[in-house]
Simulated assay, not measured.
Amino acid sequence: MAGRLLLRGMLAGILAACLAFGFARIFGEPQVNLAIAFESALDAASGEPPEPELVSRGVQASLGLLTAAIMYGAAYGGLFALVFATAYGRIGRFSPRMLALLLAGAGFLAVVVVPDLKYPANPPAVGQPETIGMRTVAYFEMVVFSLCALTLAVLAGRALAARMGHWNATLCGGAVFVVLVALLQWALPDIHEVPDNFPAVVLWRFREAALGMQLVLWGGLGLIFGTLADRVLARRNSAHYG
């Protein structure tokens, strides 16, 4: 069963990535173009020659973006399917579709929302080249720590459910997650690299588009995979009882 769910998870991830690509093309690319124009204007004002394009902007915004989105979606879809296969029947009596939506929501919260609160996405012209390594490491540390905090919160909620009831245990698990995330946000370094004269509207809309793209990806993954997994598990159950 895990193998069939894995294939369907990758398929769901690819389909969700195509939806996210369409969202990014409509809402994200215009902000990227504005940010690039801002960067080019700064370079021209300082007398610096423009950097040569290894890949044209048109390819980056079309085939390059689609390829990256599909690879990203397939990888996350496969991991999502493995987590689903592990969680199904072990964390509650949820239907496949409901469990897929819950896992997608948890993934969006832990992998996207929590890290973005500390290190939000930035368009071109924001950030210094010499800090790329530090920013990348700090961001992935936030992702890993956020996933660990979510896992601990779930385990705490399950451990308390028998004594406190499911509702109170869920509230306690949520409180554990919030406290751990707050500590992580405080412990990791702040990074302030937005130029003073960078258009605030472009920055805000770019971050909105980046978050929206992730929401479409995770929401599509949960909905599509839940439907596919429901069919696989229904056939398995009918074969088992037939």
Rank of each mutant, 00 (worst) to 15 (best):
L221I: 14
F27S: 07
A75R: 12
A162E: 13
G220C: 11
V201Q: 15
L152N: 01
I36V: 15
V111D: 08
G222R: 06
R235S: 15
P120F: 01
L147N: 02
G157M: 00
Q60A: 15
G9Y: 06
L42F: 10
I36T: 03
A153W: 00
A182Y: 11
S238N: 12
A16Y: 04
V179R: 05
P50G: 05
V55D: 09
F206K: 03
G222N: 08
G77A: 10
L42S: 12
L221R: 09
L19D: 08
L155K: 02
A35H: 01
L82R: 05
P30T: 01
G165W: 02
A12C: 13
A100F: 05
L215R: 06
R8H: 15
G64C: 11
A239S: 14
R97C: 10
E29F: 10
V114R: 07
T86G: 10
G157V: 01
R93W: 12
Q60E: 14
L183P: 12
C148S: 11
I132V: 10
R8L: 15
P123N: 01
F145Q: 04
G165H: 07
G173A: 08
A209I: 04
G173I: 00
Q31S: 09
R207D: 07
G219A: 06
L171I: 13
S40L: 14
L19S: 09
V194S: 12
N237L: 13
L66I: 11
L19N: 11
F94T: 08
A121H: 00
G174V: 06
I191W: 14
F27T: 09
A41W: 06
I91V: 13
A44C: 09
F206T: 04
P49A: 15
F94R: 07
A68Q: 03
Q60W: 10
A138T: 05
T170Q: 03
L171Y: 04
A209S: 14
L102F: 02
C172W: 08
M1K: 09
A149C: 05
C18H: 08
A68D: 06
G78A: 11
N237D: 15
T227P: 03
Q185M: 15
G28F: 00
G92F: 02
A45M: 12
P124Y: 01
G174F: 09
I132G: 00
A61C: 03
L160D: 01
P123G: 00
D190H: 14
A200I: 13
F145V: 11
L228H: 06
V55Y: 12
G174L: 14
A209T: 02
E48G: 08
L109G: 03
R205C: 05
A104V: 07
P120W: 01
D230N: 13
G9V: 05
P52F: 10
V32P: 00
P129C: 02
R163Y: 00
E53I: 07
F21P: 02
Q185T: 13
D190C: 10
L228V: 03
F38N: 11
P50S: 05
L217Y: 08
L228K: 06
V201T: 15
L147T: 00
L101D: 05
V126P: 03
V176P: 04
A187Q: 14
I132W: 04
G92C: 09
L155T: 00
G174I: 07
S56M: 12
L102N: 04
L102Y: 03
A37Y: 09
I91K: 05
A35E: 03
E130T: 02
M164D: 04
A106H: 03
